[in-house]
């Protein structure tokens, strides 16, 4: 029988206080590392971009030149910005309606036994590494995509956005955008599904009780309720697409200097995004100035994704504030 005094002895009093403090300090330390990392990313990108930007004799935002091997150093991001935004916007425009439909399928249409495995299959789509998407798209999908592009050129070619260009095969902004759409589909689907599933049942039942069909119920109850969530999902998807590197690098062909002379609005043009320009030249970071020029591009990409993600966050926070 353990007596009271024995227990009192083994229950070493107040010894834990120090341990508690150490443990909490570790937790705070780890959190501080996170904060420091983000600050460091920003600081390093800025400080390393700065010298190159100072030497830059071209306008960084409006120039399309990227000549950094020999002085005078000239580089600008206009065409990178264009290609990055075009591919990402195409991706979002395709992926949002598709992702929302799949989310509705998972939350409101799929039979209960199918909904779970189906959701996991969609999640698997997110597990496929992006280099495999790139490989698959450029080697296997491109031949099937070409006729579509030819058709669009023929029918819509009078619109500058769809005019024919010198870029051969499927190495176009349009095709990269389509592949990006597949890659951001899972995130848009899962976030949309989450908000659709949260639709208050009484909204749905109210609609159904008034004799609405399932689609009318979705249109009047589910979609309005989920709208901020879908917008936020679209922004997060956009953020992913903007920074996606290797798949885009594999798919789009960079333009020759000759083709770069004249700017084309066409989606069927080649080009380089921020990420693919950096990736294509990763082996050439041999001087601080050269590296700095690419780091400047990386900085713009960082700011761009930050803004897009911040918008997503604000939208979802505002919704949370309303629903509470």
């Amino acid at each position: 029988m353990t007596t009271e005094t024995e227990v009192a002895q083994v229950l070493r009093p107040a010894n834990h206080r120090r341990q508690d403090q150490v443990f909490k300090a570790l937790a705070i330390g780890a959190s501080s590392v996170i904060v420091a990392l983000v600050v460091l990313v920003a600081v390093f990108l800025v400080t390393q971009a700065y010298p190159a930007l100072r030497q830059n004799t071209a306008n960084f935002f409006t120039s399309r030149i990227f000549s950094i091997d020999t002085p005078p150093i000239m580089f600008g991001i206009a065409d990178l910005l264009w290609a990055t935004i075009v591919t990402s916007v195409i991706a979002v425009v395709i992926a949002v309606p598709l992702g929302v439909s799949i989310a509705l399928f998972l939350s409101h249409y799929a039979p209960e036994r199918l909904a779970r495995p189906a959701a996991q299959l969609v999640a698997l789509l997110a597990a496929v590494p992006s280099i495999i998407y790139g490989l698959w798209a450029s080697q296997l999908v491109a031949p099937y995509y070409l006729p579509v592009q030819d058709f669009l050129e023929k029918v819509l070619g009078w619109i500058p956005l769809f005019s024919a260009t010198n870029t051969s095969g499927g190495a176009t902004l349009m095709f990269a955008g389509i592949v990006l759409a597949v890659m951001i589909l899972p995130i848009i689907t899962s976030l949309s599904r989450e908000v659709f599933a949260q639709t208050p049942t009484f909204h749905e039942e109210a609609a159904l009780a008034l004799g609405a069909t399932r689609w009318e119920m979705i249109r009047t109850a589910v979609l309005p309720f989920g709208k901020p969530g879908v917008i936020s999902a679209a922004m997060l998807g956009l953020g992913r697409a903007l920074g996606e590197t290797i798949a885009v690098t594999i798919i789009i062909s960079s333009l020759s200097d000759q083709n770069r002379q004249s700017f084309s609005l066409s989606f069927f043009n080649g080009g380089e995004t921020f990420a693919s320009r950096i990736a294509n030249n990763a082996a050439e970071f041999d001087t601080p100035t050269k590296a700095g020029a690419y780091i400047s591009a990386g900085l713009v990409l960082f700011v761009l994704t930050f803004v897009v993600n911040a918008i997503a966050r604000v939208v979802i926070e505002r919704r949370r504030a309303f629903s509470e």
Partner: peptide, 16 residues
């Protein structure tokens, strides 16, 4: 409660 406060002996624990 005993174990998380550092009591280890098997016999003591069984008894408890």
């Amino acid at each position: 409660g005993l174990r998380l406060n550092g009591v280890k002996g098997r016999k003591d624990l069984d008894e408890a």
